[in-house]
Amino acid sequence: MATDAPRAADSRLRSRPFDRVVGQRPLSYWLTLLGPWIGILVFGVFMLFMRDDWLTVVNMRNILIQASVFMVLAVGMTFVITGGGIDLSVGAMTGATALTVAWLVKFTALPDVLAIFAAFGVGILMGAINGLLVTRLKMPDFIATLATWITFGGVVLVVIEGHTLFRFSDTVRFLGRYRLFEQLPMAVVVAVIVGIIGHVLMTRSRFGRYTIAIGGNRKAAVEAGIPVERYKMFHYMFMGLLAGIAGVIMLGRLNAVHGLVGQGYEIHTIAAVIIGGTALYGGVPRIWGSIGGALLLGMMANALTFLGIHYFVQYVFSGIIIVLIVLIYSLLGYRQRPEG
């Protein structure tokens, strides 16, 4: 409680570790923070009872590899959404960057490593286009990225002309297929590193702090002297870079790229972020929640395949899970944001 305390001078200002961790946060705060992880646990136990061949090293690894692409994308999306935006073009960007690598190694003499970096560059460039539409042309984030979603996806279709490019070198497939110590998939390592970097950026950097400020109260951010538009630009470029990384992982995993690769990824990514507890209207990030959300969706996709349920049904289940989790969050009465 705030009290009038004239005994200011002698009362020591010290750090209280218990307050620091638990503080005055209500139980509902912790439940939403742990939401996706509780979901993973419950779902895992359910699967254990359903199929005794589910919990195997190979299957767990498959789940992780499958989810890693979405983990990478979800970290970027957490920044975009927390800053008050949304990026619908991530799926198209992921496909486009995968195609960039494929096209460069198949049709040019560019070394494989450079082709990968070129894909990162293309990702950043596409992100910059999104950013320019939002900051310079003042388009609503939703409309701008809806337009680029269609455009980037269209460019991919035009370039690839209905073909499939396949079989790539180990260098190209490094991020998607390489196993560290013959066991640990590189894709998972990348996802974890992206998660750690995302977390540090969000909690310990100006970039993260200003992202929260912009999404939390744009007017106050402007008044505090924060260059809002520059940071919005960064969000989309960061998202583009991560889409590039996700695209390279995906290409390595599939060892092929066709015109429709990346389709539906935007829905999956946004779903992962929402399940993770990030506020859709900005200002409240949950980086690890997004990682957990991606993992939960990956587990579900894997389980449905395991249980012999058709792939398409996965969408129905994803939708139901989102509704359920958001419902639970709101029933808990945990308010993330001021109203309005």
């Binding site: 100006r206 702090r209 929260i212 400020a213 939390g216 109260n217 106050a220 951010a221 924060i226 944001r337």
Partner: peptide, 20 residues
């Protein structure tokens, strides 16, 4: 008030003038 509601007290006090 030009404060960010989702941020805590110190984050608001130092907004735009963060110590590093």
């Amino acid at each position: 008030l030009s404060l960010v509601g989702v941020m805590n007290a110190y984050q608001n006090v130092f907004l735009g003038k963060e110590l590093t």
